[in-house]
Design a protein around this nucleic acid. Sequence first.
DNA 1: TAGATTGTTAATCGATTAACAATC
DNA 2: TAGATTGTTAATCGATTAACAATC
Lengths: 205, 205
Amino acid sequence: MKTTKISEAVVRRLPIYLRYLTHLHHMNVKTVSSQKLGDILDINPAQIRKDLAHFGEFGRKGIGYEVDYLIEKIKQILKLDQEIHVALIGVGHLGHAILNYNAYLKENMKIVAAFDVDPQKTGEVVAGTTVYHLDQLGDIIEEKAIRMAIITVPAEAAQEVADRLMQTRIKAILNFAPVNIKARDDVRVHHTDVTTELQSLSYYL
Amino acid sequence: MKTTKISEAVVRRLPIYLRYLTHLHHMNVKTVSSQKLGDILDINPAQIRKDLAHFGEFGRKGIGYEVDYLIEKIKQILKLDQEIHVALIGVGHLGHAILNYNAYLKENMKIVAAFDVDPQKTGEVVAGTTVYHLDQLGDIIEEKAIRMAIITVPAEAAQEVADRLMQTRIKAILNFAPVNIKARDDVRVHHTDVTTELQSLSYYL
DNA sequence: TAGATTGTTAATCGATTAACAATC
DNA sequence: TAGATTGTTAATCGATTAACAATC
């Protein structure tokens, strides 16, 4: 099918599929049905088929989906078939943790530079990634062809950092600061934050 | 209105409202309209009114919402008017970062115990929180009246940890491991994971 | 062939938004 | 009073699920 308007819900499920398909690949499984996938991931099989059908006919009737082929296709859709360089801004505790997580990101995604306003941290190397001063943001992003950014600064500084990022080529931001960041229409911002998650979970106690 | 069946989408917005209302409180703002709230948070004002109306009539026609009163009400709804003790399982990089985040959780939420399988880590104190061996999970959860858990172990261990948690009084789990955890109907599990977030963002590049 | 499973249409369900009477 | 803003109903929009012909 043609790429009309793909909803965010669909896009958010693709990495979930990819994750389990990769697991199946390592288990040497060759083929999987939407039924099996749905059982494991707690997602309706019809929804999985529909999600995938947005992007093409990847399965075979009577058989299911070929694991390796589907992995390849989903990676293409998510642009994970190319190297994606990521910047991280804010080398506090959370920033540190994510930098240490770098090796796990795999799928061609890599944090290649970190930034902080603290001159003490500048020049430091955290888990293999150099920390630059925030003033170098534009230059390094250009130099290292960085396309995505992770914000792990305090809430008060987040919008300012986002504004600086929007003066660069960055088109996607993952914001961990507990504040709603305003961005232009052509820049995609996702928010995630431990406190908010825990507070909404608390409702169900 | 009566508490019929509140959707997850509504529950997830409540902490967002609470966060900004708390900000307004610190700014000494007394009253706010759904219009203003919506502008700042990028949420439709009608939706905000509807979300809140699920739980009662908190506003005043022609005036808006009284900030302090609404804060109090949302805290009640989210059960944040009581002390909520949280356990963290898996003291790796991410676990460390979240433990250091503890002070920021506020709103009566507190990580009071950490667990790990590594005997080397047992007894250690991270950011004020003692690390216990996983074998003590049930005992400590009982002793410290813990009601929520954060899983930050590797993917392979996550389901096993969840299974152990389900033998305790825990009814809400925040899972950072990149795997879909299966749980009983009476246990609420939310998933969050940096890799998945980054991969779905990548689609928009 | 018979059984399995896709891709897709139609039906259902639920969530968001618009509109407005009530009222501060 | 006039203007502002809620709570709520009705309209819209979109996402999920069921069902099934096509076909491996």
